[in-house]
């Protein structure tokens, strides 16, 4: 297969189309416009492909809800402020148990913030984001190749668990270009019985999230939890990097993990024993590997391009088993590996 040099935003769009996504609705917002624009150009060329520039992010995600219920592999994308607007729809997708892929190329916030790469939406992504007891699977790519791969996989996960899946990138993942080889998508496995297409002569069905009876609503909640427990057991993904004989381990995801690798390579060259654990699924969070690592290593440093959000999950996972410190750069600042290395050395020497 051919290697092509492609930006994250385009690779994500191309991977989605290759994975059989045939419905995309979006709304312009920087730094993910190239993804919407890619879909405008290519989705309508795909067989039965629909592209709609919606009037808002709220409309876009609800179009996806409709398309998903009607059987299409459906996707929407945005960046932080737009993702806030999509939360109502994401909550509805989770309640209705409908598959969908939502891409967030995060930018600096809160509010309008700026358009630079940031990681301030971790809480929103991993805690459900909208109202009610639910979870979305959250995938955090660190390279354009991984973004393409995870986009394809996101559709399979969404179908398998009939649940929204979020791809959590950032401005840099979307804008940077790297060589990509597109993988082969798996054939779709999604039972027709979930597709709403008119009952014909058969029994009619409905898809809904409103369950007025408390006990039945409670049972729906526990049913979702049982599903989330399966996901938490089966779908955890992470990468470890140079953790052997490490004295300090960095925890970072997405583009921050790339910067961390750069810092670690520098530090290893000067004899510091540092490594990295990179969560690829942010929910479910790879808690077990952290606990296992804490058996050998007592010093962890969380690095995020935020004021410290994943930090909570690391502390919850370690539950006092190790020392946890934090280095954060919110607001669209992307530190260089050298800057991060400096922060690491300070903690290393404690």
């Amino acid at each position: 297969m051919d290697k092509i040099l492609i930006s994250g935003n385009w690779a994500c769009g191309e991977a989605a189309i290759r994975a059989g996504c045939r419905f995309y609705a979006g709304y312009p917002i920087t730094p993910q416009n190239e993804l919407t624009e890619y879909m405008a150009e290519h989705m309508r060329q795909a067989e039965n492909g629909t592209f709609i520039q919606a009037e808002s992010e709220i409309a876009a995600v609800n179009m996806v809800l409709g398309a998903s219920a009607a059987g299409a592999r459906a996707m929407t994308s945005s960046s932080s402020p737009g993702i806030s607007l999509k939360q109502e729809g994401i909550s509805a997708l989770a309640a209705d148990e409908l598959p969908a892929v939502i891409v967030n190329m995060m930018r600096g916030g809160p509010g309008l913030g700026n358009i630079l790469p940031s990681q301030g939406d971790y809480y929103q992504a991993t805690r459900g984001g909208g109202h009610g007891d639910y979870r979305t699977i959250v995938l955090a790519p660190a390279s354009v190749q991984e973004l393409a791969d995870l986009t394809m996989e996101a559709f399979d996960l969404a179908d398998a668990y009939r649940n929204p899946v979020m791809i959590l990138g950032d401005g840099m993942t979307g804008q940077m270009m790297e060589p990509v080889v597109f993988g082969k998508p798996r054939p779709r496995r999604y039972s027709e019985k979930y597709v709403l297409k008119g009952c014909g002569a058969g029994k009619s069905r409905f898809v809904r999230g409103l369950i007025l009876d408390a006990l039945r609503m409670e049972e729906h909640n526990w049913k979702l939890v049982r599903k989330y427990n399966v996901i938490a057991q089966k779908e955890v993904r992470f990468e470890t990097f140079r953790t052997d004989n490490a004295k300090l381990v960095i925890i970072a995801y997405g583009i921050a993990a790339r910067i961390a690798k750069g810092a670690i390579n520098r530090l290893r060259d000067s004899g510091y024993r540092v490594g990295l654990i990179r969560p690829i699924t942010l929910w479910p969070f790879p808690a077990q590997i952290l606990r296992d690592t804490a058996e050998r290593i007592g010093n962890f440093l969380v690095f995020e391009m935020s004021t410290g959000q994943m930090l909570d999950d690391v502390k919850l996972a370690l539950d006092g088993r190790a020392r946890v410190s934090f280095y954060g750069r919110p607001g669209g600042v992307v530190p260089t590996p050298a800057e991060l290395a400096k922060a690491i050395v300070q903690e290393y020497q404690r």
């Binding site: 840099m172 940077m176 583009i255 790339r258 910067i259 690798k261 750069g262 810092a263 670690i264 390579n265 992307v334 530190p335 260089t336 590996p337 050298a338 800057e339």
Partner: peptide, 8 residues
């Protein structure tokens, strides 16, 4: 390539 960002 570890970091796409250049320190130096």
């Amino acid at each position: 390539i570890a970091s796409p960002v250049a320190s130096q």
